[in-house]
Amino acid sequence: MSIIRELSTEMDWLEAYPVMKQLRTHLSQERFLELTREATNSEGYKLAALYEEGEIVAVTGFMPMITLYNGKFIWVCDLVTDSNARSKGYGEKLLNYVETWAKNNGFDIISLSSGLQRLDAHRFYEDKMDYMKKSYVYLKEL
């Protein structure tokens, strides 16, 4: 039986790091902890994990935001399932968890971005989870 819980301590975050590292390959453990600590304290970032038989098999990070485009909404920053546990519905369960959290906390929009190369993820978001493709996200490194 799977269990989802919010990860609120650095020990929890360390436990989630091996799965998150599969999505955020550029992050060292130290940098992951540093960014998670800062985002949690200053931006309201939440990290949640899905456990199967006591082991983390999927992780999501999300946070409340306000923009003129969306108003008050939740931004899904991260969503990853362990490569050995994919196609078992864990991503769907975590996104449903985020949706429930959003509704319970007065949010009615959830938004996310997905890398251009992640075609399987795009099909998942659009076909299975009913997300609409609304824009492109652009990035300029300075």
Rank of each mutant, 00 (worst) to 15 (best):
I4K: 00
I4W: 00
I4S: 00
R5E: 14
R5C: 09
E6N: 02
L7C: 03
L7G: 00
S8D: 07
S8E: 12
T9W: 09
T9S: 15
E10K: 07
E10D: 07
M11C: 10
M11L: 14
D12C: 03
W13K: 07
L14K: 15
L14W: 02
E15F: 04
E15L: 13
E15I: 11
A16W: 10
V19P: 00
K21G: 08
L23D: 10
R24L: 14
T25F: 08
T25C: 04
S28C: 09
Q29G: 09
E30R: 11
E30A: 15
E30S: 14
F32C: 10
L33R: 11
L33D: 04
T36F: 05
T36H: 07
T36K: 03
T36S: 13
R37M: 08
R37F: 09
E38D: 14
T40W: 05
T40Q: 08
N41V: 07
G44I: 12
G44T: 10
Y45P: 11
Y45K: 12
A48C: 14
A49G: 15
A49K: 05
L50V: 11
Y51Q: 00
Y51D: 00
Y51K: 01
G54S: 02
G54T: 02
E55S: 10
E55L: 05
E55P: 01
I56S: 02
V57A: 01
V57S: 00
V57F: 00
V59P: 06
T60Q: 06
T60F: 07
M63T: 04
M63L: 14
M65L: 13
I66K: 06
I66F: 15
I66M: 09
T67H: 05
T67V: 04
L68I: 09
L68V: 09
Y69G: 07
N70M: 05
N70W: 11
I74E: 05
I74G: 06
W75E: 09
V76R: 01
C77K: 08
L79A: 10
T81P: 01
D82E: 05
D82H: 14
S83M: 08
N84F: 10
A85Q: 11
A85D: 03
R86H: 05
S87H: 12
K88F: 03
G89N: 01
Y90L: 05
Y90G: 01
Y90I: 04
Y90N: 01
G91Y: 02
K93M: 10
L94Y: 03
L94D: 04
L95K: 02
L95N: 01
N96D: 10
Y97P: 04
V98A: 06
E99G: 15
E99M: 14
T100F: 08
T100Y: 06
A102D: 06
A102T: 05
K103V: 11
N105F: 02
G106V: 08
G106W: 07
F107Y: 15
D108V: 00
I109K: 15
L112Q: 04
S113R: 08
S113E: 15
G115Q: 09
L116C: 07
R118F: 13
H122E: 06
D127R: 10
M129W: 12
Y131P: 11
M132D: 14
M132Y: 08
M132I: 07
K134E: 14
K134T: 15
S135T: 10
Y136K: 11
V137L: 12
V137A: 13
V137S: 13
L139D: 11
K140L: 13
E141C: 04
